[in-house]
Computed example of a mutant assay.
Amino acid sequence: MHWYEKLNQYFPVEEMKSKEHMESLLREHPEIYHKDEGPKHVLMYVELEDFVFIDYLFVSKASRGEGLGHKLIDKLKRKGKPIILEVEPIDYEDSDSEKRLKFYKREGFEHATSIGYSRRSLATNELNALEILYWSPTNESEQKIFEAMKKTYMMIHTYKDKEFYGRSYQPVEEVLTKRDNHDDLLEDI
């Protein structure tokens, strides 16, 4: 199965970039947008000078529990930069959502409780709220994570959005916000 189809079958439509969008990033920005693919996984990530952003991480159900996800995260950790990703809050109708959060907690990720992230899907027109998780070898502040997310949103998520989707995503100021007193998603897991 093609790498895009693996991702498309696993991730919700409102979180997926189009195949053209991702292939364009790989082709036009190979210095920052990367694909690590194997028979049992697909990892799409952005690497900039001061952080790594995991765009998509898929490990096949058949190979879960074999340590493959840990190996992929460990490979990124060895770069010595903060690692950032977006994740859905727990959905009790989707057993994978809690398993994902437990996995990232085991890997040492923290919840950026001061960052709000909500964008309208161009595919469904629904508002999609996600949470930001991060791992840092140097105890980065959530402010630095916030700035890195803004950069990712503008460079990657909205890259040629009008060309690929016929309209633009919301401006970064509407999507990423600072917030107070938000519960830690990973606390009770």
Rank of each mutant, 00 (worst) to 15 (best):
F11Y: 15
Y92P: 14
M155Q: 12
Y56R: 10
A129Y: 00
S60V: 03
Y169G: 02
E47T: 10
L43M: 04
D188A: 12
P12L: 15
H34Y: 08
I73T: 04
L122F: 03
D50C: 02
E110K: 15
A112C: 04
I54K: 09
H157K: 09
I32D: 04
F11K: 13
Y33E: 09
I54A: 13
T113M: 06
F11W: 15
F146T: 01
G80I: 11
L43W: 01
L186K: 00
R106S: 02
F51L: 00
M16R: 14
V59R: 09
E20N: 11
K35Y: 07
L130E: 05
L85V: 08
M155K: 14
L57C: 11
H21P: 03
E131N: 05
N8V: 03
G116H: 13
F11T: 15
Y153E: 12
E163L: 13
P12F: 09
Q170A: 12
E15S: 09
P30E: 11
E14P: 15
L7R: 12
Q170N: 03
L101N: 00
I189P: 00
L85E: 04
N8Y: 13
L185M: 08
K160M: 05
H2E: 15
S136L: 04
L26C: 13
E31I: 04
L26N: 15
M44H: 06
E110V: 00
L186D: 00
D184H: 01
